[in-house]
Design a protein around this nucleic acid. Structure first.
Length: 556
RNA sequence: GGCCCUAUCGUCUAACGGUUAGGACGGAAGCUUUUCAAGCUUUAAAUCAGAGUUCGAUUCUCUGUAGGGUCACCA
């Protein structure tokens, strides 16, 4: 008993120059891809920032596409004119670029679209949607509804109050069975309206749904006459847009956040109404955070700065650190793979749905991220750290950049201490911003700006600081080998009553004032202002005699 | 509240129905030709609760509990 509107009335709802369904089919032919190839996509709405969850979903989607020789594309979902900020598409594109997630089709960093299934921005596809919104009305599968937003709201509130499942459905679907005359009357009055799906579903009926990640599910059929199209803007709502686009763009696998799970029945109904085969769905558990240590919640764009993907760039994380951390959240065996294949590109790791399915709303763990990152940076050459650190610093830490650039070779030598060729390279840098704290003292202006050295830092040998430095001046030879150099340090200590090593000191602590480590500390603190630094001999080598003497002198 | 999903150390997780419940991060202790870092050694730390099925349950079933998602609009 679907109420089908007369053609003359339908003609008033849509432009009369719409391409036919056939024409669209010709424009967007089926993709020719190898067996098993997945076509995946990211469909963000441009609202100003890229969510970390979006990066996570894209990373996973992109990897599945490319590990099966398929296609990953980017489609900007800007159907909500009120919320979309089209210019922020750039933010999304740049984020994907930063994280090295290659997009085969869609908007690129250069500002131009590529791909044969475009345009890849929904607001530019209005005609396509209109063809099918019209078709649904012609077939009686959709109808115009003249309820005001206030009416719909009141309806919802009323239903809630009465303990009834809220929504525009069944007997509450006021315009579902309106006569052509009633429709015509509103139309001629110019009443604003929306187009709703005429759902055939029964909420009491369960349908079996297979989700790539959640497995076999039983969900209630959709029976809501969902708003699918807004003639005032000429654009569909998300649900219809997703169905039409993923059909014509040839998407085979939709991987999206699990907040979408409950709308799967609606989407399946729409695919059926249009006579198309739906893609496979996989619903990802969200990345979460905890505030008071007990309650978990999904990262929120508004409240949580760490939800913003660009934060990781600002903080100075190398993009691959974040990528590898996310890969580990997606497939927990990535970590083992990485351990077994320390030198391989993480692209050689294949993601599986089986593992992904077990990832269950993980908490974002910065400590772990930082550990992953230190591991990655420890494998870089000094030159790479210099280049990448400098390009970060130029944008986010000009003072550091300025110093790094003054003498690139000096900086690289400093960065190379205990690094290239070392059996176990240092793991002190997790983010480029660590460069300032960990190596800043190499640069005189930064060193002079540090907190003045307090006696506390000198430790056990603080009373002998002057004597130690004086003795050092007498014997220092910058051409000494490391062994010769260290022998001299020990000798200085010995004369002043310090043991040669920690062992000797521990055996007979009462015999000594301390041990050679305490003597070394005097130099360390004077030279760097810190008690933790790499090997002192190397530091002196890099700094050069003049700078070393200059800094040591201050204690006298 | 209805519906859906989930439940192992603090965190991320591993374990054909049979393991001393494993690993990683973080914590603690120790080792070292200078301090750190790293590395190595050691260590504390978990199967949400209760029933049932079973010779045997982290694993299967049920109930409860807790957490997450969703239910006006938007995506």
């Amino acid at each position: 008993m679907n109420q089908i509107l007369p053609e003359s009335l339908i003609a008033k709802l849509f432009p009369n120059d719409l391409p036919s369904a056939e024409e669209w089919k010709e424009k967007y032919p089926q993709r020719k891809l190898p067996e098993g190839a997945m076509v995946t996509r990211l469909g963000p709405s441009p609202t100003g920032l890229m969510h970390l969850g979006g990066v996570y979903a894209s990373l996973i989607s992109e990897r599945f596409a490319h590990q099966t020789n398929g296609v990953f594309f980017l489609r900007i979902e800007d159907t909500d004119e009120a919320r979309s900020q089209p210019e922020t598409t750039e933010v999304i594109v740049k984020s994907l670029d930063f994280f090295n997630i290659p997009v085969d089709e869609g908007m690129t960093v250069s500002g131009e679209e590529k791909g044969n299934y475009g345009p890849y921005t929904q607001s530019a596809r209005a005609k396509l949607y209109q063809t099918f919104a019209k078709q649904l009305i012609e077939q009686g599968k959709a109808y115009p509804c003249f309820c005001t937003p206030e009416e719909t709201n009141t309806l919802g509130e009323q239903q809630m109050k009465e303990g009834i499942r809220p929504g525009y459905y069944g007997k509450w679907a006021k315009w579902r069975d309106a006569s052509p005359e009633e429709v015509e009357a509103e139309l001629s009055k110019g009443t604003p309206y929306v187009i709703r799906l005429r759902s055939n579903g029964d909420f009491e009926h369960k349908i079996k749904v297979h989700d790539l990640l959640k497995g076999d599910l039983e969900l209630s059929e959709n029976d809501i006459d969902k708003k699918i199209f807004v003639p005032a803007t000429g654009l569909p709502r998300y649900h219809l847009a997703h169905v039409i686009d993923d059909h014509f763009m040839g998407t085979t696998h939709v991987l999206r956040g699990d907040e979408w799970l409950s709308s799967v029945p609606l989407h399946l109904e729409l695919f059926e109404a249009l006579g198309w085969k739906p893609p496979e769905y996989g619903h990802l558990a969200p990345i979460q955070k905890t505030e008071d240590g007990s309650k978990k919640r999904k990262l929120s764009k508004r409240k949580d700065p760490e939800a913003n993907a660009m934060l990781y760039q600002e903080e100075g994380f190398p993009s691959e650190s974040v990528v590898e951390y996310l890969l580990n959240l997606a497939n927990s065996d990535f970590e083992d793979w990485r351990k077994a294949n320390p030198e391989k590109d993480n692209r050689e790791f294949s993601l599986t749905f089986e593992r992904l399915a077990r990832s269950n709303g993980p908490l974002l763990d910065f400590v772990k991220l930082n550990d992953v990152s230190k591991e990655i940076v420890s494998k870089m050459s000094a030159a790479e750290i210099y280049d990448r650190g400098l390009s970060w610093a130029k944008q986010y830490h000009p003072k550091l950049a300025e110093e790094m650039e003054k003498d690139p070779d000096y900086t690289k030598n400093a960065l190379n201490i205990e690094r290239e060729g070392a059996p176990r390279p240092r793991k002190d840098i997790g983010t480029w911003s660590d460069l300032y704290a960990e190596t800043g003292y190499f640069f005189d202006p930064i060193f002079q700006n540090q907190e003045p050295v307090s006696d506390e830092l000198f430790g056990a040998a603080k009373d002998d600081a002057g004597a130690i430095v004086n003795a050092f001046f007498e014997t220092f030879n910058e051409n000494d080998t490391k062994d010769e150099w260290f022998e001299k340090i020990k000798e200085i200590g010995r004369k002043l009553g310090y043991a040669d090593g920690a062992k000797a000191y521990k055996l007979e602590p009462e015999k000594y004032k301390g041990q050679v480590g305490d003597v070394a500390k005097i130099f360390r603190v004077l030279l760097t202002g810190k008690t933790n630094t790499p090997d002192l001999y190397s530091i002196m080598k890099v700094m050069g005699k003049e700078r070393v003497m200059e800094r040591l002198k201050r204690v006298l």
